[in-house]
């Protein structure tokens, strides 16, 4: 989108001004609307903690957080109106964090839980000099 502007610009240093930068200016209605939704979602995430959903509680909290984050990124950070390449860069980073965490979780699930009685643990920790 904006990169299209860059391509459309004449490749000359002659045009020094004249609206050379064409950013997307987010209208106040969008800013305020996003803000309102963010506040509502914050209230919602606090409220949902008081409801027992069992193992779903963490997923509900994460889903709300992801939704809030998406709103901030798309509108406050203009990513929706930006060159798609910026989104590629950002999403790549997120993907790598996801890979990192999921492989770490897969790995840690492979080990027996450390349920040793405290005495054993004490010896272990004192051996490690902790």
């Amino acid at each position: 989108m904006s990169s299209a502007h860059a391509a459309a610009e004449p490749r000359t240093t002659e045009d020094s001004h004249a609206g050379a930068v064409h950013p997307h200016i987010v209208p106040p209605s969008v800013l305020l609307g996003v803000y309102g939704v963010l506040v509502l979602l914050t209230v919602l995430t606090v409220a949902v903690t008081g409801v027992d959903l069992g193992p779903l509680n963490i997923w509900a909290a994460l889903a709300i957080a992801v939704l809030k984050a998406a709103l901030v990124v798309l509108y406050f950070m203009h990513l929706r109106y930006d060159s798609p390449f910026n989104a590629v860069v950002f999403i790549t980073a997120l993907l790598f964090v996801a890979v990192f965490i999921s492989i770490a979780l897969m790995d840690t699930s492979e080990y027996k839980a450390n349920d040793d009685p405290p005495g054993t643990r004490m010896m272990m920790t004192s051996q490690n000099g902790v």
């Binding site: 860059a6 610009e9 004449p10 050379a20 930006d82 060159s83 950002f90 980073a93």
Partner: peptide
């Protein structure tokens, strides 16, 4: 062009934010 400069600055910033995400990751 100023627009090219602006877009490059933004791209650089998003790359930096990517490394920030990785650090917090």
């Amino acid at each position: 062009t100023p627009d090219q400069q602006y877009q490059s600055g933004k791209l650089g910033m998003w790359m930096f934010l990517g490394t920030e995400v990785l650090m917090f990751g």
